[in-house]
Design a protein around this nucleic acid. Structure first.
Lengths: 195, 195
DNA sequence: CGTCTATTTGAATGTACTCAAAAGCGGTGG
DNA sequence: CCACCGCTTTTGAGTACATTCAAATAGACG
């Protein structure tokens, strides 16, 4: 089966944290699916309930919030072997505060809300896996808040570049500016001064 | 036993998410302890490994990071029935990026790193409890980042006031300014203009 | 009561934004 | 394959938001 190949990276990531058997891997494959999102398509939409979490096999996505004034603010970028999808809406089955958009043609493994409940019960270690996954995400958000509090836009940009060197080339400056919390014009200025 | 009374709020919080038996409650009490921190004392220190997570019964704490320039940045405040303690350092047993300080005389239930491993194994539901706890914390950090990206200092301050109305009276403006990411002078200005 | 820290006030400065216009770039259709 | 269209990036002027530094005032605590 060819799909097995696609799941290797996901299984690797899980096994890096908790052990899973061949049988459990089959269950995971049974209760998830491969999906494709063309470039620019919306994967999830703000104010709608989220039904899936996505593990990216190929491509790139952004998660953003649109505020009262209609301005978009990028919260996350996800590339290969990252997870995407609003966790709050997914777990609580409440309307999402975020839109998720494919920035490139993107292939994912999708797990639905109902199926993950089944998997949690069949494979208790997954509970731990996702706890640790969220914990890591939580920690990186903490770091980001501290950075936002203590650093200037230029420092944050430099750090972003060193932290995600490969991502920068795939994403427009406009989106990076939004992620950093500055205007595209100001990011352009910073780049011209310090490059 | 009087300590039982102290644990009521903790058990309530756990049972709000997962069921636990009377026996399991006893195990939790066995593998945790009551501790007291006088006002201004340091509960955890930056660059040291964190050994406990704390559930606050009474009092108030702040978690802050000291940057290269020696400036402190408040990341969290915790009051009654909140948790405090750097999760990253606690779970990974690595040096912490944060200092935790009692802002008032504070009484807590403390759980050590080794004891929580025992409890995870004895009471698997706790794994889910902490996953959901972290998930909630993660979600509120997401919100905070979006707010920081989309709002001015005045808007953030107003939101802080409505979101944590009881906390403001217990914490100095200096610390609130640091939490908001502005100088105490500027917060003072905002307050004088819009009050 | 005196000391230490927190808060207020004000002037000068810096960081980042808005608005506008021009230049660059990528995709699409003829 | 080129021309055009729309979107992104650059550049610049003027402005707003927030900081720094300094000094005065107010509060908290022993």
């Amino acid at each position: 089966m060819d799909t097995v190949q696609h799941y290797q990276k996901l299984f690797q990531q899980i096994e890096h944290i908790v052990p899973i058997s061949a049988f459990e891997k089959e269950r995971i494959m049974k209760y998830s699916s491969l999906q494709f999102f063309p470039k620019k398509s919306l994967v999830q939409q703000q104010d709608s309930v989220v039904f899936h979490e996505y593990f990216l096999l190929k491509g790139c996505m952004r998660t953003y919030h649109t505020d009262q004034n209609g301005n978009e603010h990028n919260l996350f970028f996800a590339t290969e072997h990252w997870w995407a999808g609003d966790l709050e809406s997914f777990t609580r089955q409440t309307p999402s505060s975020f839109t998720v958009q494919a920035l490139e043609d993107t292939t994912v493994i999708a797990i639905s809300h109902s199926d993950i409940q089944i998997l949690y019960n069949e494979i208790p270690q997954l509970e731990r896996f996702f706890r640790i996954l969220i914990q890591n995400a939580f920690v990186s958000l903490q770091r980001r808040i501290i950075n936002n509090l203590s650093q200037t836009a230029l420092e944050r940009y430099k750090q972003f570049r060193t932290m995600y060197p490969n991502i920068e080339q795939r994403i427009s400056q406009k989106h990076i500016a939004s992620y950093l919390g500055i205007t595209p014009e100001f990011l352009s200025l910073l780049r011209s001064k310090h490059d």
